[in-house]
Measured scan of single mutants.
Amino acid sequence: MTEYKLVVVGAGGVGKSALTIQLIQNHFVDEYDPTIEDSYRKQVVIDGETCLLDILDTAGQEEYSAMRDQYMRTGEGFLCVFAINNTKSFEDIHHYREQIKRVKDSEDVPMVLVGNKCDLPSRTVDTKQAQDLARSYGIPFIETSAKTRQGVDDAFYTLVREIRKHKEKMSKDGKKKKKKSKTKCVIM
């Protein structure tokens, strides 16, 4: 069974824990209790493949930012979460993405942009803004509501699919490099 290491990042209060708990335990946590770091595991079937999701729910508070490099190193894919009623959390996505790329030393890291709290009427981040940002990053965008469960499975499952595509691409690139290195030079 394939294991996928997913990391949920975003500013404090955007609903990272609520999304994760909704996926794992099928219930909505409405009281806000700032996370330092929590880890969850769940076995699911995605596109006919049974897999184990190892999900790291991270601290959004700035005082825990020193811990970010460590979990970013171990993560295979990242859910970059903002709240649709919090423009600052949307603007912060850029910083999370840049930090992930720096730590992973790669421009090509599996990510999904997630606009959470889409059940709320007080939207300050337009869907088109988020779609445009995701398009500019070359990553999928999904709106979710941890409260109603809308888009929750889709967000995590899409990230797994992005990781699969990335692994497939990397193995193809690896095979191309191996083929090239088999060419021999004969000096007579």
Rank of each mutant, 00 (worst) to 15 (best):
T2M: 11
T2I: 08
T2G: 14
T2E: 15
T2A: 14
E3H: 12
E3K: 14
E3R: 09
E3T: 10
E3D: 13
E3I: 07
Y4D: 12
Y4T: 11
Y4L: 14
Y4A: 09
Y4S: 12
K5T: 05
K5V: 03
K5Y: 02
K5E: 07
K5P: 10
K5L: 03
K5Q: 07
K5S: 08
K5W: 01
L6N: 01
L6H: 02
L6F: 11
L6E: 00
L6A: 06
L6S: 03
V7L: 04
V7G: 04
V7T: 12
V7D: 03
V7I: 09
V7N: 07
V8W: 03
V8P: 00
V8H: 03
V8N: 04
V8R: 01
V9D: 04
V9S: 06
V9T: 05
V9N: 05
V9H: 05
V9M: 08
V9P: 01
V9E: 01
V9Y: 03
G10H: 00
G10P: 00
G10R: 01
G10E: 01
G10T: 00
G10C: 06
G10K: 00
A11E: 09
A11Y: 08
A11T: 09
A11D: 08
A11S: 09
G12P: 10
G12I: 05
G12W: 08
G12N: 11
G12Q: 11
G12S: 11
G12F: 07
G12K: 06
G12M: 10
G13K: 08
G13N: 10
G13E: 14
G13H: 09
G13C: 13
G13F: 14
G13V: 11
V14E: 09
V14H: 12
V14A: 12
V14C: 10
V14N: 09
V14Y: 06
V14P: 10
G15P: 01
G15N: 01
K16P: 00
K16E: 04
K16I: 00
K16F: 00
K16R: 03
K16Y: 00
S17M: 01
S17C: 03
S17H: 00
S17D: 00
S17T: 13
S17A: 02
S17F: 00
A18N: 13
A18Y: 02
A18G: 13
A18F: 02
A18M: 09
A18K: 08
A18D: 06
A18E: 04
A18C: 10
A18S: 09
L19D: 13
L19N: 15
L19G: 15
L19Q: 14
L19I: 11
L19P: 01
T20R: 02
T20K: 03
T20D: 08
T20W: 01
T20M: 07
T20V: 09
T20I: 06
T20S: 12
I21R: 14
I21V: 14
I21K: 13
I21Y: 15
I21C: 15
I21D: 15
I21N: 15
Q22T: 07
Q22R: 11
Q22H: 10
Q22G: 11
Q22L: 04
Q22Y: 05
Q22M: 05
Q22N: 14
Q22E: 12
Q22A: 07
L23F: 13
L23M: 13
L23S: 15
L23E: 15
L23W: 12
L23A: 13
I24C: 07
I24F: 11
I24T: 13
I24K: 13
I24R: 08
Q25C: 07
Q25M: 08
Q25N: 13
Q25D: 15
N26V: 05
N26T: 08
N26C: 08
N26Y: 09
N26I: 05
N26Q: 14
H27D: 15
H27A: 15
H27R: 07
H27W: 09
H27I: 11
H27F: 12
H27G: 15
H27N: 13
F28E: 04
F28K: 04
F28V: 06
F28N: 03
F28Y: 11
F28W: 11
F28S: 05
V29M: 14
V29C: 12
V29F: 09
V29H: 11
V29R: 08
D30L: 10
D30P: 10
D30R: 13
D30A: 11
D30E: 12
D30K: 13
E31P: 08
E31T: 08
E31M: 14
E31V: 12
E31C: 11
E31K: 07
E31H: 10
E31D: 13
Y32G: 04
Y32L: 06
D33S: 03
D33H: 04
D33Q: 03
D33E: 09
P34F: 10
P34T: 06
P34A: 10
P34C: 06
P34S: 07
P34D: 05
P34W: 06
P34V: 05
P34G: 05
T35N: 01
T35W: 03
I36Y: 04
I36P: 02
I36C: 13
I36Q: 03
E37N: 03
E37L: 01
E37I: 04
E37P: 02
D38P: 02
D38T: 02
D38C: 05
D38F: 02
D38G: 03
D38A: 04
D38H: 03
D38R: 02
D38K: 01
S39W: 04
S39L: 12
Y40N: 02
Y40L: 04
Y40K: 02
Y40D: 01
Y40W: 03
Y40V: 04
Y40A: 01
Y40S: 01
Y40G: 01
R41G: 13
R41S: 13
R41K: 13
R41C: 11
R41V: 10
R41N: 13
K42T: 10
K42V: 09
K42G: 08
K42W: 07
K42Q: 15
K42P: 11
K42Y: 08
Q43H: 12
Q43I: 08
V44K: 11
V44A: 13
V44Y: 08
V44T: 15
V44G: 14
V44C: 13
V45N: 14
V45G: 13
V45E: 14
V45I: 12
V45M: 14
V45L: 12
V45C: 14
I46W: 09
I46R: 10
I46K: 12
I46C: 10
I46M: 12
I46N: 13
I46Q: 11
D47Y: 06
D47E: 11
D47R: 07
G48I: 05
G48L: 05
G48V: 06
G48P: 08
G48F: 05
G48Y: 07
G48M: 06
G48S: 09
E49Q: 14
E49C: 07
E49I: 07
E49M: 07
E49P: 08
E49V: 09
E49D: 11
E49L: 04
E49Y: 07
E49K: 11
T50Q: 09
T50E: 11
T50K: 13
T50C: 09
T50A: 11
T50Y: 09
C51H: 13
C51M: 10
C51F: 12
C51Q: 11
C51W: 15
C51N: 12
C51L: 10
C51E: 11
C51K: 13
L52E: 15
L52F: 13
L52N: 15
L52Q: 15
L52Y: 14
L52M: 15
L53E: 08
L53V: 13
L53N: 08
L53R: 03
L53A: 11
L53F: 12
L53I: 14
D54Q: 07
D54W: 03
D54C: 04
D54T: 06
D54L: 04
D54M: 04
D54F: 03
D54K: 07
I55Q: 04
I55R: 00
I55N: 07
I55S: 08
I55M: 10
I55T: 13
I55C: 09
I55A: 08
L56I: 15
L56W: 05
L56T: 14
L56E: 03
L56Y: 03
L56G: 03
L56Q: 05
L56R: 04
L56D: 03
L56P: 02
D57I: 02
D57N: 03
T58Q: 00
T58M: 02
T58A: 06
T58K: 02
A59K: 01
A59E: 03
A59T: 08
A59S: 11
A59V: 01
A59R: 01
A59W: 00
A59N: 04
G60H: 00
G60V: 01
G60N: 02
G60T: 00
Q61M: 10
Q61W: 04
Q61S: 14
Q61K: 10
Q61C: 10
Q61R: 06
E62H: 07
E62D: 11
E62A: 07
E62I: 07
E62Y: 05
E62W: 04
E63W: 03
E63Q: 09
E63I: 04
E63N: 08
E63C: 07
E63R: 07
Y64S: 02
Y64K: 00
Y64P: 01
Y64N: 01
Y64C: 03
Y64I: 02
Y64T: 02
